[in-house]
Design a protein around this nucleic acid. Structure first.
Lengths: 308, 308
DNA sequence: TGAAAATGATAAGTGACGGTTATGAACGTT
DNA sequence: AACGTTCATAACCGTCACTTATCATTTTCA
């Protein structure tokens, strides 16, 4: 029998995690499955790769060599797969992940542009939170993702798309009053107990807390929403205020007439929305093409919101 | 699911054979097995790799790219396996093939030298004819082989070991008479009907025919031996003459007192015995080391025969 | 020092995958 | 038109890789 790519992948995970259990979790199998595959790899290659004698985890010298080769091999495989999929630019099947606070606003704008560019594109969309998307990205389950950048993950290629400013959203009347009086709000001056947030896991919630200089414990833990439209509904009903991304302002104010938004004083708080992918070293024409389209869509959205 | 090394190997075979059936034979599976794996590879990679429309076999552009990547990948895998096995020179398990007309003479001499060099060496020997050994070599079933060189196979690394001259072997009396009278035989002057040969497939038989300038049909087809000791027995019994490799002379004349040998006139016919391996681009210290030992053993054998 | 936790190996059972043979469909050849 | 070649498909089957459960060993902590 021969060495398999699966074994090499498991071995790389093991070498990097330095722990059988964690490595197994990383490759989405149980620990015994990984153990047997590692043992099988050692048998087939004819040498011990992992030093099981001492306490601390360590690779044998042969293991070091195999690790280097294995990285080259699986890297080349990934490069091959990417090359062949994107050799003609943006075509074929594309799996794109988008965070929930961007998807419902950017997609209606971007999809027609994508269709206009290439009708043969088989686009698979996945809406999930940043953490899930990053995991799926590194697993190769999705090809790219639209998230807030910088992600802080090494080995990712990030292409900034547009700056998404945060606006203060509240019930119509108090906001209108602020407008009339020329009273421009500042993020740090918001009342934390009045601040409504998305559920745990949404990067927008973390960003809102950060710009307000507060923490989740000081907010109303009994009230959080799982989507921006829901959150805006709460705001419109007078349950409090929130920070609303600029790209969401137009549709959400239209959907909730009792809610209004107002810009913060400069420097306005904001998030940078970007397109990210793994660095596989292959051609990236499709990526730049996609980024261009999304950028165009985002800027169109922002132009609509500029009037506010 | 992910691409497997098996699929890449099958695809390389297919691309090189340009024929599903032949490619399947080359990788030792049946045609449907190869077909399904190729189809599976295409599915997983997301593109057609083989153009099945026209009659002539051809790869798609994507197929060309994948072929290049696949070659790099399996090459790297093979390099990795070779590296790790031979990183410390000649140690570990070594599978060596030797042709039958060399094995019984060279091995008794070489094995003690190998043992002296490294007692940990786990040597697996395989005695088979050249064609079988070359096949097993390219399949990676053996690490190296001792055959007559040049093999004429591209992509093989050949290390000449020693020159093995052919001597004329016949019944004791006529040979002794030739010796006394100073009558030195010439290969071309032998009587083909008197020439005894090994069975079909032994390179020694082909070489004997070549140096005698004759063909198998003109020899006694009803009499051929499957091993040199048997052949020498026939010679000793007076059934004819044969060409005996120099390395076989001492043991065979000792074993068959009724047989004797005499050197041909210069230029003496001969074969070059060499050590061959696949070119995997890795370290080849073990190979040179092995070649050195075998060369030493061969030269010791020849020194014994020089007295004849 | 002894109990608990952590870590990796082993065992038993099961599903999926890759292999085989048999057969079918498409196409060129005689 | 019948046949042969070539590749795809079908049906069946053994092996392999996964799972859960458990064990052995080592580390940690009271």
């Amino acid at each position: 029998m021969n060495v398999t790519l699966r074994q090499l992948g498991y071995f790389i995970a093991l070498a990097e995690e330095r722990h059988f259990g964690r490595a197994a979790a990383r490759v989405h199998v149980t620990q015994p499955a990984l153990s047997t595959q590692i043992r099988e790899l050692e048998d087939r290659i004819g040498t011990a790769l992992v030093d099981r004698s001492g306490r601390g985890f360590s690779l044998t010298p042969a293991g070091q060599d195999v690790l280097a080769s294995a990285r080259r091999i699986v890297g080349e495989v990934e490069r091959m797969e990417a090359n062949v999929r994107w050799q003609d630019g943006l075509r074929g099947r594309l799996k794109l992940g988008i965070i929930p606070t961007v998807a419902p606003y950017l997609l209606p704008q971007a999809l027609p542009l994508l269709r206009a560019r290439d009708v043969t594109l088989d686009l698979r969309l996945r809406e999930a939170q940043t953490e899930a998307l990053l995991g799926e990205l590194s697993d190769g389950l999705i090809d790219a993702a639209v998230i807030a950048v910088p992600s802080g993950v090494p080995g990712l290629i990030e292409e900034p798309l547009f700056m998404d400013r945060f606006l203060l959203a509240g019930r119509r009347e108090p906001i209108a009053e602020m407008r009339r009086s020329g009273q421009v709000p500042r993020p740090g001056e918001l009342n934390p107990s009045q601040l409504l947030l998305l559920d745990e896991g949404h990067c927008l919630a973390d960003q809102a807390l950060e710009v307000c200089g507060t923490s989740r414990v000081s907010t109303r833990v009994d009230l959080s929403a799982s989507s921006l439209p829901t959150l805006c509904g709460l705001v419109a009903a007078g349950f409090g205020q929130t920070l609303l991304p600029e790209i969401a302002c137009v549709p959400e104010t239209a959907a909730a007439p009792e809610m209004d938004v107002v810009r913060f004083a400069a420097p306005e708080p904001m998030r940078m929305i970007g397109l990210v992918r793994r660095d596989l070293g292959g051609p990236d024409g499709w990526f730049r093409e996609l980024a261009e389209i999304l950028q165009e869509a985002g800027e169109a959205l922002l132009a609509k919101a500029a009037a506010i």
